[in-house]
Design a binder for these strands. Structure first.
Length: 494
RNA sequence: GCCCCCAUCGUCUAGCGGUCCAGGACGCCGCCCUUUCAAGGCGGUAGCACGGGUUCGAACCCCGUUGGGGGCACCA
């Protein structure tokens, strides 16, 4: 059992059905990283053989997610390549041809049994019907086949499984072995003549020269069937060998279950929408089953590609930990050059209606000034909306919880003193504001800084968390600052 | 039920027979810094599932137990 010769060729072959799953994107990432690491190629193929569930819209979305993450493909939809088409719905003739060859060579055979009949036979023999198909149609005579056809039955095509153990050396699990006879002859082509995933996936991998199949562990039990198919395909000259397999650990959710499509945490879009950085998400996703070094877990996509090796992927299932994902992303966010940060964050402010598209000169100036201060206080880009919103509106809306905390007893005194000090200020600069407020509140009222500045912050920004106060006030301007202090004074209870 | 996979701090992991009374990260808890929140600095908390072997020596190898997970379609 040898893999096709030549450079590594990996593939990502999603079925475009609805939402994009984070586990699926992690599989794409590993395939991409392994191809890049080895100097091989990364192929994308769309598995849309189920017209009832597949849509072009979700295909576009899938590709868009790949691009956004930075996982460029060397062959596939939208870029083409020598092994196209890369959409299974456009490859029907190929499958029909291979199916015919498999039948003619005797590797596959026509099977007429219905599920009910198989079940009945299993039960009659005192066996568990869960055992599945019993290989009963392997040696049907022509007369028997004609009789079934005369009844109006249309046969499925099944692969004849070999009478020997099927084993392979898995990239992440080492040797895996399934006993002879454990896997029944399985269906390759439906009764209506359309091919199934079981046929189409290995055929395309063979035709596209895929050398390494890296996929989720949930597909591990289907590997013996595929190995048997590959042998048959090699025998009839369709394949040049059996690829190496690597079964990646599953991505688990909160509980102890595979992160299901139903789970909101599994939806890739939510991370993108919240403003995770591609590099941040790549970094975190890569960590789900792999590590770059003993004492390091922050790295760029390029560094990942440089270092990634499937053979060192862990076999343990990995739980998706949002807190850690956020921490990793925050680190990437802070490391971003200010210009790039601005470019990335502006669409979120535009989307929230806080700044114009493009921002006005004044808005741009404010943004430029606050960006470095905001950057280290954010986890995801959308945090900017709540954190910076107060700078781009006339009247700030005060968060009730913040008011509760800071605008209660004693706040009136602070706001009055701050107002008096700021009104008299000859020049409106960060330094002047700082000096004036410290004199008025800390020295004048004898308050601890914590108590002195809390109410002022809430009055000005509407929240207990904001960019540094003096800078914020300078950017806001004297007029708006004083208006807000007055407004807060009106609601303060003491 | 059958087949297969997995088993180190709460979580992700390093460890591939001695250099491990087990290292890093997230989280959590302190302290420092400090105008809030962060960031940053320092420190702490917490783990080799269990039982047998093999070996001079086991987190690392073997077997079993237990626990967890995945798969058993004319879906992909």
């Amino acid at each position: 059992m040898t893999a096709p010769a030549g450079p590594v060729r990996t593939r990502f072959c999603p079925s475009p059905t609805g939402t994009v799953h984070v586990g699926v994107m992690r599989a794409a990432l590993y395939n991409w990283a392994y191809a890049r690491h080895t100097g091989g190629q990364f192929v994308v193929r769309i598995e849309d053989t189920d017209p009832a569930r597949n849509t072009l819209e979700s295909e576009r979305h899938l590709l868009d997610c790949l691009r956004w993450l930075g996982l460029t493909w060397d062959e596939g939809p939208e870029v083409g390549g020598p092994h196209g088409p890369y959409r299974q719905s456009e490859r029907s003739e190929l499958y029909q041809d291979v199916a015919a060859k498999l039948l003619a060579s005797g590797h596959a055979y026509e099977s007429f049994s219905t599920n009910e009949e198989v079940d009945a036979r299993r039960r009659a023999a005192g066996q568990d019907p869960k055992l599945g198909y019993d290989n009963a149609d392997r040696f049907l005579t022509d007369a028997q086949k004609s009789a079934f056809r005369a009844e109006g039955r249309e046969p499925v095509l099944r692969l004849r499984m070999p009478e020997e153990d099927l084993a392979w050396t898995d990239h992440v699990r080492g040797e895996v072995r399934f006993a002879a006879g454990a896997v029944p002859d399985f269906v390759l082509v439906r009764g209506n003549g359309t091919p199934l995933y079981t046929l189409v996936n290995p055929v395309d991998d063979a035709l596209m020269g895929i050398t390494d199949v890296l996929r989720g562990e949930d597909l591990l039990p289907s590997t013996p069937r595929q190995i048997a198919l590959y042998r048959a395909l090699t025998d009839i000259g369709v394949a040049t060998g059996t690829p190496r397999f690597g079964h990646l650990p599953l991505v688990m959710g909160e509980g102890n279950k595979k992160l299901s499509k139903r789970d909101p945490q599994s939806n890739f879009d939510v991370y993108r929408d919240r403003g995770f950085l591609p590099a941040g998400l790549v970094n975190y996703l890569a960590l789900l089953g792999w590590s770059i070094a003993e004492d390091r877990d922050i790295f760029s996509p390029a560094e990942l590609a440089e270092a990634f090796d499937v053979d060192s992927v862990s076999a343990n299932p990995a739980r998706f930990d949002l807190k850690k994902a956020e921490a990793i992303n925050a680190t990437h966010l802070r490391a971003l050059p200010v210009e790039e940060f601005l470019t990335a964050v502006t669409p979120y402010l535009v989307g929230a209606g806080l700044v114009a598209d493009p921002p006005t000169a004044e808005q741009a100036a404010t943004l430029g000034a606050i960006a470095p201060l905001a950057q280290e206080r954010m986890i995801v880009l959308s945090d900017a909306v709540g954190l910076l919103g107060f700078l781009f509106t006339e009247d700030v809306e005060i968060d009730p919880a913040a008011a509760e905390k800071q605008l209660g007893a004693g706040a009136g005194e602070v706001l009055d003193a701050a107002t008096a000090a700021l009104q008299a200020l000859p020049e409106w600069t960060t330094a002047a504001i700082e000096t004036a407020l410290k004199e008025a509140l800390v020295e004048g009222l004898g308050r601890k800084p914590r108590q002195a500045f809390g109410p002022v912050r809430v009055a000005v920004s509407g929240r207990t968390v904001s960019p540094p106060l003096y800078e914020s006030m300078e950017l806001l301007g004297r007029e708006r600052t004083l208006t807000r202090l007055a407004a807060a004074r009106g609601t303060a209870t003491g």
